[in-house]
Nucleic acid binder design. Structure first.
Length: 474
RNA sequence: GGUCCGGUAGCUCAGUUGGAUAGAGCAUCAGCCUUCUAAGCUGAGGGUCAUUGGUUCGAAUCCAAUCCGGAUCACCA
């Protein structure tokens, strides 16, 4: 099982989430290509203090506004209130410190923060009004996410909701207490001591009895196993959570959960801006929806400038722009080693030349153009000698199965991206030097037609493993 | 401070089970469209592989130290 995406329902998706989504989807496909049975799953972090924050802000500032009334996409609408909460929180903290409170005290006593904490307790108690507001606002976010997921091609076989799994987590905490894995402090909070394993003491339940982040993860780990008896549980989660995942696995082992040793954290690096890390709360994020729109727009400009598809219908054009725009974006995010952090400079938009998605797509379209005019004839003899550039292509093509296996064993789609680029490069070099249609002999022509078919198949299959479509013409 | 990750061309990245002149793409410069799509092809310039020491016939790759950058160690998620 590959768990990926895992959004919070308090803000829209950004570029970092896109890396996660593309990576998770691609890893799942690569594993399938190696014969594994794969389930794609998603845990929606739909409850918790962060959700309450946007709910509080909506109550305070919205005056009943809705996504419909403001004509805003639902996830963006709710995200605005998450930002408003943090603005108000900062303002209140400043006010309190100005009146003589220490910063630490002010952060705990700010009225909006107290209100959010109270709301979380009310939520866990099942307060009717709180639950109703929660459902309403999450509903808005889901409507927004649905659009984004459809755009970027993310899909899931199973979606889990934290609001369903946290109770199982809390039950496991109870069990752990009786087993002596966890201990309760004087104030009622529950802890696990991992100092013997080189880590720290970690809280698993707050003194007010509400659950923390890791509580639901423990519950989910068990639930996944009980439902599907999975033998490998891959979590596609950012490397900022390395410690958290280490703790999760350790706790699972100490609790004796049946699948503890199958938990694997596919840790990927953050996408950073030249100015540093993206922060939702400070508005320094590259929004996922904006990014998609921009890429398709850039694809349109390039396509129009080249003027090769003037006979396309409006629908065909729209679909082509999406194919190229998304191809450029996915390839860009998947071509580097997932474990490494990467820097994205919004000033320099994603390239369409060189080591890019459109380069590979272009090579494919070029080959299809040849094959529309002529296809190999199985009856005719094939040249039995290979020129250097023909041999180069064949040599590359032969590596495909090994590359797929390698990508699977490393859970690394960049292996595929690099490979597919080199195949395309080899074909283009050949293409500039030799002609297929006007080959020196009929045998040569047959050979080259077959090479073309094989190359186009490898490119198409390889790109599919990255979640990228290839166009017949561009 | 503890733990973990990283530092390769102006920029973004490959290469790290030790092996020949360290590779791409972008950017710069010079060429290539009367024949299958120039989103392409060919070539040039550009590197003390952070630094120092060690192991080795041989180090970008292994070891140690140092410097620089980042993540994390929350009753946030």
């Amino acid at each position: 099982m590959v768990e990926y995406s895992s959004p919070n329902t308090n803000k829209p998706l950004h570029l970092g989430h896109l890396r996660n989504n593309f990576l998770g989807w691609s890893v799942a496909e690569i594993l399938k290509a190696n014969g594994y049975e794969v389930l794609k799953s998603c845990i929606v972090n739909d409850r918790g203090i962060h959700i309450c924050k946007s709910m509080i802000a909506w109550q305070l500032f919205a005056n009943g506004a809705t996504p419909q009334s403001t004509n805003t996409k639902g996830d963006h609408f709710v995200g605005e209130y998450y930002v408003k909460f943090n603005d108000e929180y900062k303002r209140q903290v400043n006010e309190l410190t100005a009146s003589g409170m220490t910063a630490e005290e002010a952060e705990k006593k700010a009225p909006v923060m107290l209100a959010a904490q109270q709301m979380l307790q009310d939520w866990e108690k099942g307060d009717k009004d709180v639950l109703e507001l929660w459902k309403k606002m999450n509903g808005w976010v889901y409507e927004g996410f649905e659009v984004t997921y459809k755009n970027i091609g993310s899909d899931f076989d199973k979606t889990y909701y934290e609001s369903d799994t946290y109770l199982l987590g809390k039950r496991i905490v109870e069990d752990g207490l009786t087993k002596g894995v966890f201990t309760k402090d004087g104030d009622g909070s529950v802890w696990i001591d991992l100092t013997a394993d080189g880590l720290d003491r970690k809280i698993v339940q707050r003194k007010d009895g509400t659950s923390v982040y890791i509580t639901q993860d423990i519950g989910l780990a068990l639930q996944k196993y009980e439902e599907y008896k999975i033998d490998k549980s891959i979590y596609v989660i950012g490397d900022e959570q390395n410690y958290h995942m280490k703790v999760l696995k350790l706790i699972a082992e100490k609790l004796g959960l049946p699948n503890a040793e199958n938990i694997f954290h596919l840790s990927y690096g953050m996408v950073e801006l030249p100015s540093g890390k993206m922060k939702s709360r400070e508005g320094t994020v590259v929004d996922a929806d904006d990014m998609v729109t921009e890429m398709c727009e850039t694809a349109r400009q390039h396509t129009e400038a080249l003027g090769k598809v003037k006979d396309f219908s409006a629908n065909e054009l729209e679909s082509l722009y999406r194919t190229i725009g998304m191809g450029a974006m996915k390839f860009y995010l998947l071509r580097v080693d997932p474990r490494k952090k990467m820097i994205f400079n919004p000033e320099e938009s994603i390239d369409f030349h060189g080591f890019t998605g459109p380069f590979v797509q272009y090579t494919y379209a070029r080959i299809r153009s040849i094959l529309r005019k002529e296809s190999p004839d199985e009856q005719k003899p094939v040249s039995d000698t290979l020129l250097k550039l023909e041999k180069d292509i064949l040599h590359k093509l032969e590596q495909f199965p090994a590359v797929i296996a390698q990508a699977a064993s490393e859970l690394n789609p960049s292996e595929i991206a690099n490979y597919v680029f080199h195949v395309a490069k080899a074909f283009n070099t050949f293409y500039a030097e030799h002609s297929v249609a006007n080959a020196e002999s009929e045998e040569k022509k047959q050979l080259r037609l077959r090479l073309s078919v094989m190359t186009s198949n490898v490119l198409k299959t390889g790109m599919h493993l990255l979640g990228i479509e290839v166009p017949e013409r561009m």
